[in-house]
Nucleic acid binder design. Structure first.
Length: 240
DNA sequence: GCGACAG
DNA sequence: ATCTTGTCGC
């Protein structure tokens, strides 16, 4: 996996915001992803505990979702959680995890936002610039935007608009989708990260859904990143 | 000034 | 995200 850093991570919140505004203009959100040619999809997540962050990337074969590789990376948590600046908290350890990846996934699904972000650069979009491959944001709650909400059935989808529609204002652009991954549970907030369009992002997440709320790759990464007091090494996992 | 706010 | 006991439900 070739990684392509665009800037260093030691920045102030003010500088972080300036960087996001610059990077937003470099995203490609109009590229279709042909699922019939997708072979490997990866899930990405980070857990934090006692000032330490652990990143996990789990690559799975598509569409059968067999685990091909799991990599972990650990480091001191370098940045506080600030809504809109999550990437500057998770970015450094995620970069290290990506460097340890031997297989090259055709697409990545992140636990967090893609372009459905105040400045259009959620963690999936931001790291997409590092990966230079298709990335999708799959958040469990809303960061920004407005939606009437999807229907109650599994697979139901509703548009996520940039803001709530106003009577005498132009219709807000669509920045993502709200997806009911399971009947009777809170929906997922899906948005394209980089090198992928919205329709493909929703199709990819939907295709990776199993019997749980989160798409399988993200669920696997979430579990792999879980920071327990003492964890025994798992087969195929790189040392933190 | 007030409310909102990925993980 | 993490801190935490029990509890309701398939």
């Amino acid at each position: 996996m070739g990684i392509h850093p665009r800037h260093h991570w030691n920045v102030t919140p003010r500088e972080a915001i300036a960087l996001q505004k610059r990077l937003a203009g470099e995203l490609r959100l109009d590229t279709p992803l042909d699922l019939s040619r997708l072979r490997v999809v990866a899930g990405v997540d980070v857990s934090v505990r006692a000032g330490r962050s652990r990143a996990a990337v789990v690559a799975m074969r598509f569409p059968d979702m067999e685990v091909l590789e799991t990599v972990l990376a650990e480091a001191p948590t370098p940045f506080p959680y600030v809504p809109g600046l999550l990437t500057f908290r998770e970015g450094p350890v995620l970069e290290e995890a990506f460097r340890r990846l031997r297989v090259a996934p055709d697409a990545f699904i992140f636990d967090g936002a893609g372009c459905a972000h105040p400045r259009g650069v959620g963690v999936a979009s931001h790291m997409g610039l590092w990966l230079e491959r298709p990335t999708v944001g799959c958040a469990k709650t809303r960061l920004t935007g407005w939606s009437a909400g999807p229907g109650p059935g599994r697979g139901d989808v509703a548009p996520l608009l940039a803001r709530e529609p106003a009577p005498d204002a132009p219709h807000p652009p669509q920045i993502g989708a709200v997806l009911r991954a399971r009947a009777g549970v809170a929906p997922l907030y899906v948005s394209p990260g980089h090198h992928i369009d919205l329709a493909s992002a929703v199709a990819l997440v939907t295709a990776c859904l199993g019997r749980y709320r989160l798409p399988e790759p993200v669920r696997a990464a979430h579990r792999a990143a879980a920071l327990r007091p003492a964890q025994t090494g798992a087969a195929g996992a790189a040392a933190p």
